[in-house]
Design a protein around this nucleic acid. Structure first.
Length: 287
DNA sequence: CCCACGACCTGTGGGC
DNA sequence: TGCCCACAGGTCGTGG
């Protein structure tokens, strides 16, 4: 479920149950997700305290009272659920309601208090690793990441430099995490529609005057989505069990055939496959 | 370097 | 009802 707003929502859901808590039990129920778990995964995490839950791009970061940070990526279908114990046999021995989806419950974290955080991921495009905190910025996953779209480091000048001379459309370039970190298919479609820029126009030919509004559109859509708790497709719950509702605010995404919502535009939302992914856009007002 | 495309893996929903 | 294909919020590797 994860673009930046969804990952941020998950972070917010996990922080209150994990921050300051010691992990009493950790289980990796299969040898790998997208990549194998590191050999020392369970050993390092067991007994560690989560100091802080953070997010960078689409990565969730659990800062530990250890040299390493637990790095988690949710891929396409990763999600977390929190469950509280229904009772306690003996100190440290909790029992829980039966797991409705044990087949996809790949990782389990249990705090000393008995709060259980389970990671589910049917497609297993997600991954987890332990990365040395001090040198994390040199790690291949982080070294080339572009700026956070909600930070001051992301601005029209950055975009102008990234688009210069490029023949690809802004759609595919904005999906490139080296240019800006955290956007995915939904929010790129939505931002380009808001900025009325064609997803297909060679990026190098987009007028410089259109870039500040694009930056603003990206910030707006991400901010609104975070406030809505992200987007929930296929009834995935957030980490705290609630559902995000930004999907009701989509203007073009998944809206093929609907009228363009832009004021006074008579266009109809179209869908086209671009770089192997669906692009939703209005052929009339996005130029 | 740039770009397009298939691969990874599983589930679901729509059309017939 | 049942089957099959298309498609799904993300990256990564290959080859032109």
């Amino acid at each position: 479920m994860p673009e930046l707003p969804e990952v941020e929502t998950v972070r917010g859901g996990l922080a209150p149950v994990l921050e300051g808590r010691r992990l009493a039990r950790v289980e990796a129920r299969r040898p790998d997700l997208r990549f194998p778990f590191p050999d020392n995964f369970v050993q390092v995490l067991t007994g560690a305290t989560v100091v802080k839950m953070e997010r960078q791009a689409k990565y969730l970061l659990a800062r530990l009272d250890r040299e390493d940070t637990l790095v988690m990526h949710l891929g396409m279908s990763g999600r977390f659920e929190i469950s509280r114990p229904e009772g306690q046999e003996r100190p440290g021995q909790f029992h829980y309601a039966p797991d409705p989806d044990p087949k996809h419950a790949h990782v389990l974290f249990e705090t000393e208090e008995g709060v259980r955080v389970t990671y589910y991921d049917p497609r297993r495009f997600g991954y987890m690793a332990l990365v040395n905190t001090a040198t994390m910025h040199l790690h291949p996953w982080f070294a080339e990441l572009g700026p956070e779209p909600l930070s001051d480091a992301f601005d029209a000048a950055r975009l102008k430099a990234a688009f210069a001379g490029r023949k690809q459309g802004p759609k595919t370039l904005l999906l490139d995490q080296r240019i800006v970190a955290g956007l995915g298919n939904i929010y790129v479609c939505e931002a380009l529609h808001r900025a009325r820029i064609s997803p297909f126009k060679p990026a190098g030919k987009i007028a410089a005057a259109k870039l500040p509004p694009l930056v603003q559109a990206i910030r707006d859509v991400l901010g609104e989505a975070i406030r809505a708790g992200g987007s929930t497709l296929r009834d995935y719950a957030q980490a705290d069990g609630a559902l995000g509702y930004f999907q009701h605010s989509f203007r073009v995404y998944d809206g093929e055939g609907r009228p363009c919502p832009n004021e006074g535009c008579k266009g109809v939302v179209a869908r086209e496959v671009q770089a192997g992914r669906s692009t939703f856009y209005c052929p009339v007002c996005q130029r």
